[in-house]
Amino acid sequence: MACASEPHGSAFSAAELEFLAEDEMIEIVPNLSMKALNFISGDFGPFRPQIATQVPLWLAVALKKRGKCTIRAPEWMSVDKLAQVLEAERDSEKFQPLPFHYVEISRLLFDHARDDIPDIYMVRSLIEDIKDVRFHKIGTGLEIISKERTYALRLKNLSAMEANIVRPFVTSALETFYKLSSSEMIQESNHVPNRQPQATNRGPRRQLKDR
């Protein structure tokens, strides 16, 4: 959609989040020889058979699709590590550290590099559970760092996808608190109930003059 970002919407579409995630680096093992790639986004390679090298995820997936490499699953995507994270997520109200784009990275790898992920069904199921537990924590696990006049939240360890979900929810909830506690609220009269940002009607301007 060609919409400008609205204050009450998600600023980034899922496709855009994936686009950002595709720049994360990942290790591949090429099965071909290729000269170094001098991209605008950086220099990668040269590529030699069986010699592992780091490339951005979009490049890894492109090479994998064309049968030119295998992808090394990132360390955090093992059954052991993920099981630990899941347990910690369940035990604590806080969010556990995870790669910022863990949702998008895992999705891309599931779609395009299934055979490179050991115990993929287990891994997939663990990540789904982790996503779930974290999603349900969003209401309670965020630290309020200020609640006098200006509400502020610390979103420690939240991932890109979760931040994207939280943003509109947090925005309208906090804005409500903000407005209710704001002294300006008393002077504001009719607020035209409208989706679009409108100039606040500051009430009748006419002075009743006494002579």
């Binding site: 009719n190 035209v192 409208n194 989706r195 679009q196 409108q198 009607n201 009748p204 006419r206 009743l208």
Partner: peptide, 24 residues
């Protein structure tokens, strides 16, 4: 003055609604 105010405010409200319709 009260009468005028009512008409003035009603006019304003109508204007704002018309503008909002066209603007949006």
């Amino acid at each position: 003055q009260f009468g005028a105010l009512i008409h003035h405010l009603s006019l304003l409200r109508n204007k704002r609604c018309l503008m909002a319709y066209v603007y949006n």
